[in-house]
Nucleic acid binder design. Sequence first.
DNA 1: ATGAAAGCGCTAACAC
DNA 2: GTGTTAGCGCTTTCAT
Lengths: 347, 347
Amino acid sequence: MRESERKRLQMADIARLAGVSVSTVSRALNGSTLVNAQTRERVEQLARSLNYAINLGAQNLRLRKNQTIAVVVPYDSKARQHISDPFFLSIVGSIADALTDRGYDMLLSRVDAERLDSAAQLFDSGKALGLVIIGQWRHHDQLNELAARKVPLVVWGGQLAQQLYCSVGGDNIGGGLQATRHLLQQGRRRIAFVGDAGLPEVRLRRQGYWQGLHEAGLEPDARLEVAAPFEISAAREALDRLAAGRTRFDGLVACSDLLALQAVQALRSVKRRVPADVAVVGYDDMPVATYSDPPLTTVHQPVGLAGAEIVDAMLGLLRGERVAPRTLPVHLVVRESAPAATETPGR
Amino acid sequence: MRESERKRLQMADIARLAGVSVSTVSRALNGSTLVNAQTRERVEQLARSLNYAINLGAQNLRLRKNQTIAVVVPYDSKARQHISDPFFLSIVGSIADALTDRGYDMLLSRVDAERLDSAAQLFDSGKALGLVIIGQWRHHDQLNELAARKVPLVVWGGQLAQQLYCSVGGDNIGGGLQATRHLLQQGRRRIAFVGDAGLPEVRLRRQGYWQGLHEAGLEPDARLEVAAPFEISAAREALDRLAAGRTRFDGLVACSDLLALQAVQALRSVKRRVPADVAVVGYDDMPVATYSDPPLTTVHQPVGLAGAEIVDAMLGLLRGERVAPRTLPVHLVVRESAPAATETPGR
DNA sequence: ATGAAAGCGCTAACAC
DNA sequence: GTGTTAGCGCTTTCAT
């Protein structure tokens, strides 16, 4: 009908031109040993010169197979915002690489975060063999329901109690802990925590933060916990309030690099210096962290590894294995926003 | 065979349970008017409660349709590097959004840049209706061949002479020109250009750069043109050579924000200040440009718009229209790496 | 070594 | 309104 699909070539055409049956063409093109070498050669030449390729839709139907994995990046239905956080974008890139390596196709979908179950459609309709969902957001229960329905599901996010699905994620508790310990080691005692603890990953990081405080004999102060969303413009307001507020602090742990940098700007707008007055630690270690002013001390997430782990977990599920959630190691990268102990001058 | 696909539900199952024929189920689920309201209701209920969804592979085969567009991000076969440039990643995000809005699926593929024609497989095999390729790289001819073969093709990149395919891209000449003019207006006269002119987009930007120089009565100086690739670690070396070299310069136009920031670092390593000694302009206006040290004056590319334009161009092609290449407007965002004329103190 | 025929899960005439 | 039937483009017995 469309100009471009007027008359797609099919096996029957090749068969006719080669003077053989479709079965033979099929066998030739699929490397069966049951074809005469010359016949195969003729068929292959023909196919190549005409740019014929086996119709994978038909092949998959007949073989009842499929090599497609859906990667779902939920969006906030109110904001309908563009995928913007660099971390999510790069993890998608990493998954794309891992899937390509293993010979799978990647379907990239965006779905309303409030209707995560609609992602299951991708599976039910046979479009994809399994689902990778980027982030748990506030939908742990919906994810559990999907898993209960036996939808092959791997979620990038934190490992929670009562979790039926397979998650792969960074060590959030460890990350929060390392960030906090580092600040404490530099002598900071009033440490703020920035991130929306409604999200499991953030909650775990806060748990690490609490643990760090505890180790140092400090009590958490709720006034220093800022529920800033990952969405930057909305976060800024909360950070301005924190910076301008009466509650004093000399350290800050943020749940993304962009959040950390917004905090830096908010602090500067009220004439507080980083790190002199407030030392700041970010999260993710995206490229921005090395170029920013100041360069960020931040918790490095192993993005490259993440894609491979996610895909391996998915392939395990597809093989029918029980795949345990995985937690990937993170480590602190120290830069100038929260430098290591000031070089003790002399001894 | 796999645990998870033991016995996928199909229309026949629903039909049996509902006590009707498959045709009726098909009609009911597809909203045909030729079904009794009650029958439809019963069928729909059943399907919903069993999480049955029409098998799209079979449906597509039967209907000879397909709603999938492949987005191809070429990779360098030598480096086999991860998609890392934030600009490419965000344009992929933008396309994903635009496709979702219009009801299309997006297949994200990576292919060896040296074998771009292999991307055509995605089309020939019917996996995708059309191809979006991110970047022309050095493969203008391969792209032309694909277009000559009537593969529906939209390329993010520059508009070139002798171009058979549809391209969508930022106004590269304009971008290069604006960047250069801005530096000239600040009184800079020795302006370096950083980017691999083997790539069409870069070549066009350099053309704008030359034009800017020409307007000011200046001659290009080949020693100030640095063929730095987008890949950062490789670029750094070239930038260090430039910074340490004997050829003096007081302004610099880079072809990405990351390149600009690497240039800043290279300059600092030889004790040259930005912008005091050298004013630097970046390209793309990624988030990093606002947070970096110094914040970058940079050419803003309309990423959000780009996705929509690319997809609209593709849909035009699929409708059989001739779609002309499109050039999207860019504009300079002035920040501190190349500030506007120093506030003339008094008059 | 090759061809004929059945069927993957679905839709759309065509009957009734 | 609903069922029957013939494919969509392919693979694979089963013959020969």
